[in-house]
């Protein structure tokens, strides 16, 4: 077995594809259709995009819960092995925090049992009590003993989400993958949970992939953001850049419809697109306002919008955008493939 590679990202997706047999025999759904993504130690990455774009599928694949149809997941530079033993070891380092805390806690288990469960699966029983107490207090439930014997219905929504987080922390992972960690919570509680994620990063160096359709959440806590559309990451880079000066027309539309956004909202019509029928060329072209307005034609890229796939973006931390128009207008010497030149078409 190979040794972990120093300085490697703690978790990576390498050209990951995940396909499902679609319902009603509609062919295959390409839920994740070519994704490279790296999460460095201590980094908080937000994965954003509209419902059905493949965020949860990608997150589950990174956790080893779903096997990629092609491509691979790397843990500290080493390809994930899908044996139960290897996965168990992997889970100590990479933990999942689920959306909806009421759904992920058993109503008949006390807080103590809910948190201890992870340890017991791994057979670490000796200092169980201390470790449960420690996880609870790191999740901000203090003094922990006061919560040991409570049942989920005796907790507030924020406290329940903290218990779920404590359950993930008890194994002392280095990364957590959180799927919509605050979607079902009140505004006032939301701040509390996000502050907790930031504190865990600052104090323990915990890295996180936060899956959400809430761009405000990315602004609140993430270092980097990856915007996903119909199975692909279409724009990625530091939060300050991507959320204040987005270049992909899809990212621009997502930001424009936020209640606080300046300017006229670009409301994309129609339902989120269908992964069994991914359009040829740029997958966004059928809804793209830049193409519809004629701006893409004026820049001479409309043919490529309809005919050429802008390609899969590379991993790493660089600013990248999968859009012919953005690559043309933002580069002073005319059309080029920009930072993603190395990407496969």
């Amino acid at each position: 077995m190979s040794e972990p590679i120093p300085n490697a990202p703690i978790l990576s997706a390498e050209d990951v594809h995940v396909e499902f047999e679609a319902r009603r025999g509609d062919g295959r759904a390409r839920a994740v259709d070519g994704v490279n993504l790296d999460i460095a130690p201590g980094e908080i990455v937000a994965l954003v995009g509209e419902s059905g774009c493949g965020k949860t599928t990608l997150a589950r694949t990174l956790l080893g819960l779903e096997k990629p149809t092609s491509g691979r997941v790397l843990h500290r530079g080493i390809p994930l092995a899908y044996t139960s033993k290897a996965l168990k070891r992997f889970r100590r380092d990479v933990q999942l925090v689920l959306q909806d805390p009421s759904g992920s806690l058993n109503p008949r288990h006390t807080v103590y049992d809910a948190v201890a469960e992870g340890l017991r699966i791994h057979g670490d029983v000796p200092d169980e009590r201390e470790r449960v107490a420690d996880a609870l207090s790191r999740a901000g439930l203090r003094p922990p003993e006061r919560f040991f014997l409570r049942f989920p219905h005796e907790l507030s929504g924020g406290q329940r989400q903290r218990v779920v987080i404590a359950g993930a922390l008890v194994l002392e992972p280095n990364v957590i993958v959180a799927d919509e960690p605050v979607a079902s919570l009140d505004a006032s509680v939301r701040g509390e949970i996000l502050a907790l994620l930031l504190r865990l990063r600052d104090e323990l160096g915990l890295a996180a992939l936060v899956v959400t359709h809430d761009l405000g959440l990315a602004w609140n806590i993430a270092d980097r953001v990856a915007v996903m559309y119909l199975g692909r990451i279409v724009e990625t880079g530091p939060v300050e850049k991507i959320l204040t000066a987005p270049e992909h027309p899809y990212t621009q539309a997502l930001l424009s419809v936020l209640p606080e956004a300046p300017g006229a909202p670009v409301v994309l019509q129609g339902e989120p697109p269908d992964p069994t029928r991914i359009p040829a060329g740029c997958r966004f072209h059928v809804r793209c306002p830049v193409l519809a307005s004629g701006a893409a034609a004026a820049a001479g890229v409309d043919g490529r919008c309809r005919g050429d796939d802008p390609g899969v973006l590379a991993g790493g931390t660089a600013i990248q955008v999968a859009c012919h128009y953005a690559r043309t207008v933002s580069s002073p010497d005319g059309p080029s493939d920009g930072p993603a030149a190395a990407a496969r078409p």
Partner: peptide
């Protein structure tokens, strides 16, 4: 509790409302 994207005051600075 609602971030204003672009506003540095809500970037990595969160105050939840303590208590229930």
């Amino acid at each position: 509790a609602f971030p204003r994207i672009g506003d540095p005051a809500s970037r990595r600075r969160l105050q939840g409302l303590a208590g229930d």
